[in-house]
Design a protein around this nucleic acid. Sequence first.
DNA 1: TGCTGGTATCGACCTTTGTCAAAAAAGAAA
DNA 2: TTTCTTTTTTGACAAAGGTCGATACCAGCA
Lengths: 178, 178
Amino acid sequence: MNPIQTLQHQLDTLNLWQGSLTLARHEYLHRADSTDTRLYFVVSGSVRVFILDEAEEQTIRFGYPGSFITALDTFITGEPSDFYMQALKKTTLKFIDKPAYMQFIESNAENVRLWYQLMEQLIFQQIERETDLLTSSPVKRYGRVLQRSPQLFQEIPHKYIASYLRMTPETLSRIKKS
Amino acid sequence: MNPIQTLQHQLDTLNLWQGSLTLARHEYLHRADSTDTRLYFVVSGSVRVFILDEAEEQTIRFGYPGSFITALDTFITGEPSDFYMQALKKTTLKFIDKPAYMQFIESNAENVRLWYQLMEQLIFQQIERETDLLTSSPVKRYGRVLQRSPQLFQEIPHKYIASYLRMTPETLSRIKKS
DNA sequence: TGCTGGTATCGACCTTTGTCAAAAAAGAAA
DNA sequence: TTTCTTTTTTGACAAAGGTCGATACCAGCA
């Protein structure tokens, strides 16, 4: 069982979820300039996280069933966020806020270790992401992400994947064809 | 005193550094495909971290006096790294390896908190970095990094900064002129 | 002080990727 | 299903950056 599954299982077992909510397609879970220190777990549906760069939406990441998702900047700092989180289809989530989460984490040493592991995993993912974004050829960026997350291309409209891959939908379409 | 200064001060005080080394300009501290779980502290000089993307060196980050620097992927996983670390001028570093570092961290609860903070800080920096890299206009990428790290432009040859900013030295030169 | 090797700049040209508009295809809603 | 909306694909064209070659600059060091 990986750290994410362990965490989810613990939160279920101890009944620590503080609520759940359902969003319609295109509804916002969170908007920039507001704070939100909740940690969300995607039960069904899908979510995208993006920033606004001169009226362009740049995709940061996706959440699908089984993922935790959060506006990580405001989760860490408690300051207003740069992120938007939006449902891509009808989506159900459970959540726990940071104070309750940290109380759970600090309640025993095993949980502290778990949080360590999750942070390490997060850092490692961010390193891979940085490498993706620094890869200059669009074809190679596509290849890297396709290999690492093939399920993405099943679940998510490709125009959002294009933005995640730092290219236009037209370019992604041409790459897929070849 | 910020977490980095606190850590450095502790390692000094407790005499936990395991050694120091001096590199000549352009000498490598670490190469890809090898493991290295040392945490380095830059005493003087400067270092760049980069990956190789089809014979192109893509800059990941810089270290200057007062920074900790590490091949973060292999530090986390213990697996061979994708990173290169190279001195940009004559550089002196101190180091401690991961086992000794973790022993220090786990020796008391205050240190565990310190490590928490450092990991959070790292994650936050990576989020900012992701935003930088997703910014589509080269001029805005330049502006963001100039504002956040003006000292960079004093210390580091601009051809490496250009690579860090995901553009050619010529493009960076043209942006500076305007 | 004057070499020397590495950097930075500049101009001309070229390539890749983005833009725009239209049509086709796919998916949601009723 | 049928309709309506959204997404994907395609082609023509434009433009932003990259490439290359030449020259100017500058720091480190004999």
